[in-house]
Write a protein that binds this DNA or RNA. Sequence first.
RNA 1: GGGCCCAUAGCUUAGGCUGGCUGGAGCACCCGGCUGAUAACCGGGAGGUCGUCGGUUCAAAUCCGACUGGGCCCA
Length: 992
Amino acid sequence: MPTEEPPPATAASLLEIERRVREYWDATGVPGRALAARPDGPIFRFTEGPPTANGMPHVGHLLARTLKDVQLRYRRMRGQRIVSTMAGWDCHGLPVELEVEKRHGFRSKKDIEAFGVERFNEECRRGTLEVASVWEGMSERLGYWLDYRHPYLTMSAPYIESVWWSLKTLHGRGLLEKGFRCLPYCPRCETPLSSHEVALGYQETTDPSVTVRFRLAGAEGRGRSLLVWTTTPWTLPANLLVAAHPGLAYVGIRGADGTEEVLAEAALRRYHPDGAEVLARYTGSDLADLGYDPPFPFAGPGPGRYRIVLDEMVEAEEGTGFVHIAPSFGPEDQRVGEREGVGAFDPLDGRAVFTSAVPPVAGKAFKAADPILLADLESRGLLERAGSLRHSYPFCWRCSHALVYRGIDSWFVRTRKISEALVRHNATVTWVPAHLRDGRFGNFLAEAKDWALSRNRYWGTPLPIWVCPGGHATCVGSFAELAGLTGAPLPDAFDPHRVAVDRLAVRCPTCGAAAKREPYTIDGWYDSGAAPFAQFHHPFAPSDFDPAAPLDYVAEGLDQTRGWFYTMLVLSTALFDRPAYTACVTNGLILDETGAKMSKSRGRAVEPMSLLDRLGADTPRWGFLTVDYTAPLRLDETAMRQAANRTLGTLVHVTTFYRQNAAADGLAPSGRPPTPTAALDRWLLSRLDATRELVTGSLDAFDPREGALALRAFVDDLSTWYLRRSRPRFWGEEDPEDRRRANDTLSFALATAARLLAPYAPYTAEHVAQELAAGGFATAESSVHLADWPGSLGASDPALDAAMAEVRGTVEVGRALRQKVGVRSRVPLLRFVLVGGPAPPALGAEADRLIAEELNVRAVERVPEAAVGELDVAELERAVDASGTVIALISRRPTPELEREGLVREALRRLQSLRKERGLAFLDRIDLDLAADEELFAAIDAVRPRLADELLADRLDLRRGPPADPSGYRAWEIDGRHLYARLERRAAPDAR
RNA sequence: GGGCCCAUAGCUUAGGCUGGCUGGAGCACCCGGCUGAUAACCGGGAGGUCGUCGGUUCAAAUCCGACUGGGCCCA
């Protein structure tokens, strides 16, 4: 027997395993080789969602990246080629600008202009990839394998050229148009935002809640006024109309000053809970076209202004049933204003500060005007009621400044024109969770508003539209086209950003006049939505991009339904008339351990890197993949540890057992599927096959959880049943052939399990696979991540599975009985009697043998129910089912002979553990001196050769009574008897 | 105001689409074992009106409706 076997592998911690595996991967270049593998395999289309390049990763990114990586690893093992593996960075936009502004203490666009846009953009460019290394480090640590050396950058010239190409295509199809609309607008950033950006920034806030009296004008209006409710008093100077609902019931009541006040009947109870004197009743239609005196005179007269109009949008649940309309400050207001042809009045400048058009508040920021305007109204007796209201209000998602809705010139992607196609394409997508398709996301699409694309900003993809004084708009779709319009080649290393792009002298292709670029950049979300084609510089460079082919898979956080998932779908629909992806997996928000939102400001956020330092990669990966990751998820590190220990730790442990044992036996894994005969082996392979089936199906369905749970169940079965019941076979000397078969089966099962686990827990799986290799952790350049996905084993045997389940159920009854009679498992009992039918045929006699071994009973008997009465109740303890029927019985006491056998087993176990304690290797031989009390002495003496054999003792001396000189002896008490042992390692025998 | 999701033992949850046999599991707890898987491990036990009310059905945790509470999204 060779003695140079590696030292018995002690089960290392998962962290230690990861360190070792990472070193191995680094040394052998496994990740790069895995990414480059399968150059001819069928394509699996994927695009990495580009994170904002100057934002730090958070724990939620670990989850999303785990979901992405699981699928990519699986596909590679299936022989597919991933297109593409490029990492990506979203480089443009407000977040980047904001960082630079902060650094310089800029407060507005004026500061940027003074600093110089070119310098500003240069700083943005430099700042953009500052945290990229943090992302890379985190991703590689997590095991998320992508090509980080060649990422796509949304700010690169080729990328921008692709984006321009797409914009020109949209423009040519009438899907890119300029318009004047009310949009959410950030006064600090001085730019409009898109509706999906607004969605990111709702916060609770307190606003005024006021009811203002609008006096009706003219002869018939005398002595009457309307009650109008608003939470934005600052919009009142821009009021041009009041809307009423045509069918709603209104009442005129006697007000405090005796005049008539009109409001919706439904609002009466809220305003006058004690009732009021009703002077008149109207429907909305009765009130149409009545004129009123505007609360402020600054907008001036105009056709159709200051009268009541009818609109269905008016409600009476809140307010008074009259809605004040300021067409410059609300999408609904704008619609009504346009319909009535009353024009608009916008007294705010770019920073939402009042101009001299409203003298009382000139120079005041919009919100700051509220109290002044209210005081003014009060002094004129027009303020009916004033209070405040807590409600959610939109704030800028990046700078947290309160937004305003205001009319502004902007370029739009006309998504409403294609909403039918968006819905149709979305209907083909496999969403995880499935309800998103027709639920939240589907609804969102059906109501899709036009996408406000242009930003009045600096660091972004410039909108490539040039307009000449004749009003001809030219959308440029490539650098070559741009060069053509300037009549000269573009400068070397042309950078298409502002300001360089604005310096070019462009002639209008229609009339030849000098054209100016529309001074906008575009929404950064458009850039990222273009990633599936722009990362390839489509259509300018040949690539694997196929305009007709959607991505096979994307996965990100649920918030991306309003972000990336949406913009990708809009672009794929508008450009290629197809869905953007066929499978879309979302994960829920990650909460802290108390179930609250993780917030950086409250110091609650867990740094992803520190989490990886504490837990390693496989533990959070496994933790994420075994729970419902689509729901809001509580980050519980202890639970993660437990989950990983239970399955990954157990698998490592079983692998260690196998290694020690195989080394001791000089057996190597055969590598080929075994053809087992033993029932346990056949059962294990059947379970393995079923597990393989489940994991495969689950990954095919893009929902890895079911597979993770199947693996967990398999590892439980492997450890707590197969291995425990097979131990005698691994130790036994009597049947070497069976021992070899058990070894083959176990090694094959472990090797297969390692492959099934590889997508989930890449480090642990690699460890298991490597430990199974001939010489221990391999120096060979192999990796489980370069292996093929296991095919069907043809080992499925449902009858056997059911039979084994029955046996295990029986064993549980037996264990409960043993507990009841109070005889521990090491002491054999004589009889275990099962009431009912025969053993399951799929196991036959093997069933009772397994039961006997597991319960440590000498005989398993089966008797028909009718015969139960004949059994000796004094000797046998009984177990009954819920209905009181006796189902099994067991001996109450061991016989003296069996008791002695139990003693020997106890002694043996202690002596084995003494070997371990002394740090002896598996095959070290020993000299052993034992001393024991009378009873124990007799028991041991009777089986002395067997004992010596099992303990690898070349010399075994046994003495009656305590040792003469107890020094060097270890002592135990076993059921009141004493045992002493002294053990010495023999010198290693010479190598043969 | 509208839409979607969720509610199962003290805690975390599986199952629910496709109704049916004692509703599984982990943690914590109790009993026992183990102490070279150790912020573990193994066995056993106790613990559940499956949010509430109503309906469909021979049969409901599961299907339908209403309600209550929570989460997310929109307005």
